[in-house]
């Protein structure tokens, strides 16, 4: 008697689950089709939607990106680095821990820059740069190569001033 009732309840539940699954499936198909149609017929809809939601933050992002990307006289103003191909990789990988001034005040050959990267990886927790390493080395070796300066350079940048006796 009790076994019979249990079986009946389980059967009813099964039918209910089946019904719900079918309904859910239909809703899903309808939804996906709707999104597809929306995108297909009105490709700007999605953008408009985003704009309504995040108009302010999009504006903010654009403006702060402009500040972050400011280039003047070939120099990337926020870091002082020379503007060239792969600047973005250098900024993102090399200035997370230390100031860009550590780059701009140094000069080295490609091998020298690579050995600095290895030293930072071995002792200063720099991550594996992967395929970006070659691009970063291209940038550094080109823009921060050594000058030939001999055993003693002439005095430069002298600011002349009258010295009263």
């Amino acid at each position: 008697m009790s076994d019979f009732s249990g079986e009946k309840i389980i059967n009813s539940l099964r039918r209910l689950v089946n019904l719900l699954s079918t309904l859910l499936g239909l809703v899903l198909i309808l939804g996906v089709s709707l999104i597809y149609l929306e995108l297909y017929y009105d490709p700007q809809h999605f953008e408009v939607f985003a704009k309504n939601q995040d108009e302010e933050s999009v504006t903010d992002l654009a403006e702060s990106t402009a500040e972050i990307d400011l280039i003047k006289d070939g120099i990337h103003i926020p870091t002082g680095l020379i503007d060239d191909v792969n600047l973005d990789l250098v900024v993102s990988n090399c200035t997370a821990c230390h100031s860009a001034k550590l780059i701009t005040q140094n000069r080295s050959s490609r091998e020298g820059w690579q050995s600095m990267i290895r030293w930072m990886q071995e002792s200063q927790k720099l991550w594996d740069l992967g395929e970006n390493e070659e691009a970063i080395l291209d940038y550094l070796a080109k823009n921060y190569a050594p000058d030939q300066k001999g055993r003693r350079v002439p005095l430069t940048n002298i600011e002349w001033y009258e010295l009263e006796p």
Binding site: Q105, N106, S108, G112, P146, R151, R152
Partner: peptide, 12 residues
């Protein structure tokens, strides 16, 4: 350090 040639790495 800034006067060495070839240059040495580090603060100049």
């Amino acid at each position: 350090r800034s006067e060495f040639n070839p240059p040495a790495k580090g603060n100049q």
